[in-house]
Amino acid sequence: MDPVIQLKNVSYRYPVGDEQVLKNVSLDIGRGKLVTIVGNNSAGKTTLCNLIRGFIPHFYKGDLEGSVLVDGEEIADAQLGQLAEKIGYVFQNPFIQISGVKETVFDEVAFGLENLGVPVDDIRRRVEDVLQLVKIDNLRNKNPFELSGGQRQRVALASIIVMDPDILVIDEPSSQLDPVGTEQVFDIIRLMKERGKTIVLVEHKMDLIAEYADELIVLADGEVKLHGPVREVFADPSYMALGIQYPHAAALALDLQEKGMELPFLPIRDEEVAECLARARRKEGRP
């Protein structure tokens, strides 16, 4: 593996906190991988994102131990501006991502590219593409502050994707989206992966994770408890002890097992349940 993000024995405490929020975290994230971080509220997911993006230690002080490397470079030694070109960060709260200096959605999405001094024609073309991709073309002339929650969340995503960074750190990008919009955003994330991006995604929606993600990192109380292929992680008995949500199909299957049904495998997608039950029946010697 060619790790693009490496954390080695990282522990961190915020300046005003008395406990470590991340505890001895070690991780390698390979180039071109889509890695999803799950964990309960307050587990430290956003903190981990802040660290990869360099906001810790550049913006948030506090006590940081261990090392964080992006492309082999120690993040504490890098400039925040340089990191911004390499790493796009979509904030958990889309309401705070809007720059506040642009009056239309189009200009908002163009803003980052303008700052980089990209030629005007290129900017126009790239913004047009992204407005289509993220399905906000109809909002192009609206003031970014006069949008619904879900519309803002799409604009926030668009304003990062348009920058075309190698690494995307995306913190709960679908929290304000309707169910179909959620799938569309996951399709976009998949597309970014196909374009070779390394993606770190924080998400609570396990059904979507089961559908789209390769690799899962499970964070609990600031520690990485499990890290592996999605199906293996959900099937790992120690996952249950962490009290984190399962995909709905898996939760159903686990309940059925508890009631005495024997199932041949743990379904993690809705459409796998029928097959799982059919195989269970065959094993029972029924048609």
Binding site: D178, P179, V180, H248, A249, L252, D270, V273, A274
Partner: peptide, 16 residues
Amino acid sequence: ESMLKPPSAAIIAQSL
């Protein structure tokens, strides 16, 4: 029309 999906239980029930 409203970009909604039925809950998982309904989807699984239908598949069964």
